[in-house]
Amino acid sequence: MMRRLPWTVLAWACGLVFFFPVLWMVLTGFKREADAASNPPTWILAPTLDGYREVFDRDLTPYLLNSLMASLFSTLLVLVLATPAAYALSLRPVAKWRDALFFFISTKMLPAVAALLPIYLVVKELGMLDNVWTMVILYSAMNLPLAIWMMRSFLLEVPASVLEAAEMDGAGLLVSIRRVLLPIVSPGLAATALICFIFSWNEFFFAVNLTATRAGTAPIFLVGFISSEGLFLARLCAAATLVSLPVVLAGWLAQKQLVRGLSMGAVK
């Protein structure tokens, strides 16, 4: 027991350090602007909802809807595409599967900013600027390589003998995928989905460049509170708290699967 104590303390310390900015954000959202900007910071505060009131004064709903659409549809699309791809790269590997795998991850090596101009021009020529579906397609493309790699490592965990046994019992490909494979990897699916959802939800760079007034996503709404004239920290934090709620909710819903999923690829 005593030997584990330092580790426990360290783990708690790390946890608190990482949690602190989140706590600070939530607290600041309830401060008055003047208190939020004070230096040294004020800890004791009479909580106020002014920040939240100002956030709701600007119409948050369309931004949230756009973000939800972009994140949800892209995540679904990614899962639908990544799972069979991962299957063909793990359980039933295609020829040159190593090259294929490397190709997928290599698409992540180009910095996003280098791809921006060509993407912008193509999107503009197609008349798809400021359109949520553009963001769905982009986010799917961005997350696909990651999802394939994640799903592959989850699929590799499935013992070949289980699949063989299913085949012996006369299960076809579809049946063995649906009845055997999916139940085993569902934690992995949940983990992948959550990561993809979070990445699309938080994406700012493409959103700020490719959307304007109709398809702006939640991060675009957030930065609108940054002003060079006047105080803005409290309402920015209030908005940030609101915008992070859906992700927290998604994580909470997928909690059980996540814990299994995140440890799944790690245990050999």
Binding site: P62, L65, N66, L68, M69, L72, F73, L76, G127, M128, L129, D130, N131, V132, W133, T134, A190, R214, A215, L253, A254, Q257
Partner: peptide, 23 residues
């Protein structure tokens, strides 16, 4: 529950995609 929530969301969003989605 997760499945139900996601399908509900997808359906709602698909229904209002005309509002935010049309370019």
């Amino acid at each position: 529950p997760l499945f139900v929530v996601i399908s509900a969301l997808v359906m709602t969003l698909a229904a209002c995609s005309g509002a935010g989605g049309s370019g």
